[in-house]
Each structure stands twice: as C-alpha cells, then as structure tokens.
Nucleic acid binder design. Structure first.
Ligand code: SF4
Ligand code: SF4
Lengths: 147, 147
DNA sequence: TTTTAATGATACCTTATTTGTATCATTTTG
DNA sequence: CAAAATGATACAAATAAGGTATCATTAAAA
C-alpha cells in the first residue's frame, strides 16, 4: 500500500520537534537540525516554515536565529502535523456525486469507513510530540546511545 | 488528506461485487456492470481481471461470458480488495534504513502507528461484501428505490 | 464454419501527489 | 556593512493513481 498515513514530511517534523523538545527552550537553526538528523536541508526548511505559519513554531530571523517550540511539546499532536502537511484528515473521500452513486448518504461502506476514521483520528490526536520524545529518550538511554 | 484508505478501484470493486452478490450465481458481463454502475469500461475490466487472478471471481470467456463470484460474498472482505489493488496493507512504511535512523526497531512513533495499523486491519477484515450489500439493500428497499 | 461477443494480457497515457531543489528578498546580530 | 539566519515562492523530478487502447484468445450462436 502506498497511500500512507504518515508521509515523509510528517515523519521529518516529528524527528525535528522531538530533538527540539529535548533541547528545552534553546533556539535551534535548520543547519543544526540538518547536521543532527540528516534531512535534506531545503526540504526541512520548508517544513519548519510551515510549522511556523501554523503556529507550532516560533521563528527568529537573523544571525543566531532559528526556531523554538511555541507550544509545549505535550500539546503538539500527530494530527496537528498531519493536517499541516496533508490537509484535513479524510481517509474516505466519497468519489461520486449523488446523481451517480445514489446512496452517498447511507452507503454502508462509507458509514463503516467513517466510523473507523473517527477512531483513527482520536488515536492520532492522543499521540503528542512529548510522549514520542520521552519514550525514545528512555529507550536510547537504556541502550546507552548518546543523544 | 489524499493518502486514502479506500482508493477508487477498491470502491468500484465493492460496487461491482455487491451488484453481483444480489444477482446470485448469474454470470455478469463487464458490459452489464458498466451500464448498471456507470464505471469507465476499460478500468472496470482491469479491476475484474485482477479479482479473477486473485481468485475472488471466476471468469467465463466467449459469447454470453462474464464473471461470477468464486467465493461466497460472506467471505470476501475489504482487506482482500484493498490488498488486490494496493498491495500489502501498510500504513507505516518506515522511510529510513537503520544506519540513518538508529531507532527503527524501537521508535515509539513507529510502535504507535503499528498498533493502530493492526486495529485498522482487524476492522477492515471484519467487513464483508455480503454485509455491505445486505445493508445497502435494506436501505434501498426501505426508501423504495428500485435495484 | 464464420461471425460475434465476451475475457486475457499488456502497453501506454494523463494527471495528481509526493518529495524534493533553487533563488532571491528580508531580517538580525556583530 | 557583512554574515547568518529565515520568508516567500517558483520550479523540477519521481512516484502513484486513474484511465485508455489494442490485439490475442475463447466460446456460443447463427
Ligand atoms: S459506493 Fe459508497 S463509498 Fe463509494 S462512492 Fe458510493 S456512497 Fe461513496
Ligand atoms: S523516526 Fe521512527 S518512524 Fe520515522 S523512520 Fe525513524 S524509526 Fe521509522
């Protein structure tokens, strides 16, 4: 299956935000993140700019500039990232208009997928950057891998 | 979001199979389905051929030919259709190799998505063509819409 | 036995989305 | 003013989705 739930920019964003969460309120530049995480620089820049526009990051221009989290990591959820990059979370775009598919309003396929979708969204909403970074942190410490 | 759970060929397949389920063991040609369901003919042909190869349909060549279900509608599940057209159901393709992303084996993002994925698959496995066609049938009857 | 109406196989095409790259303007610090 | 950062934006390549076209094969029916 190619239609992924988590696309690459969301994944990159998670990694970047986790790194920032660990480093407290320090201003982090894209340059730093690129060296740390090995993500294509122009792509990561675009990602950070999008997160800034969305209000998740605070940007600082000029020399010594970069980004900080403008929302505590506990309050940044996977849904926020996914919607930033992929638009509204809809897994079940109904493809027909009423005149072609007469049962758009009570199709049981649609109903079932809609129900599943609601559950998926609720799950994604419950996953915060903080929880991701904490867990990874623990694991890495346990393995003695330096951050 | 564009990364859909149900793509168009799966949706078309559901509609075609539901129609066939209603019509019992009758051999149905693509031509008939096209007229009935208003799906682009060559595309539906490709879909039916794929379902035939997968063993879900039985094909009959020559004049008067077409397809029948080779599996009872109760035993055709959404997962079967999705995997036929979209390959293995993987919502969380991990994008890095171990040497880049050192925690592929215990990344909590991956873990959480994996868990969610298992739930989604189990749900999709529980939805059969029979259940879809029955429910739609009921609704259509209740509304007095002729099949 | 020839015609006709169906599927089998397969190659191609078009569009949309994903995954980037490149450039120049703007801002801030030293 | 120069250097080092982001802002904005246009462009480009790779992949996937959605769809078309063609010819070969098969089987019923005239
Ligand atoms: S079949 Fe159901 S899901 Fe598909 S287009 Fe019609 S109403 Fe929507
Ligand atoms: S961050 Fe987690 S999900 Fe993303 S590539 Fe690394 S291991 Fe996989």
């Amino acid at each position: 299956m190619k239609g992924k739930l988590i696309t690459r920019n969301t994944d990159y964003a998670v990694r970047a935000l986790c790194f920032m969460a660990i480093n407290g309120k320090e201003i982090i530049s894209v340059d730093k993140l690129v060296k740390e995480l090995k993500i294509p620089r122009p792509f990561l820049r675009k990602i950070m700019q999008a997160l800034n526009k969305k209000g998740i990051l605070q940007s600082y221009k000029g020399q010594g500039g970069g980004f900080t989290l403008s929302v505590p990591a506990e309050k940044i959820f996977l849904t926020d990232l996914i919607t930033t990059f992929q638009g509204p979370l809809k897994l079940n775009e109904c493809i027909f208009k009423k005149n072609i598919c007469h049962n758009v309003n009570n199709c049981s396929l649609k109903n079932k997928i809609d129900t599943l979708e609601k559950y998926i969204i609720s799950q994604l909403k419950s996953i915060s950057v903080a929880s991701l970074s904490e867990e990874n942190n623990k694991i890495l410490k346990k393995e003695g891998i330096p951050l």
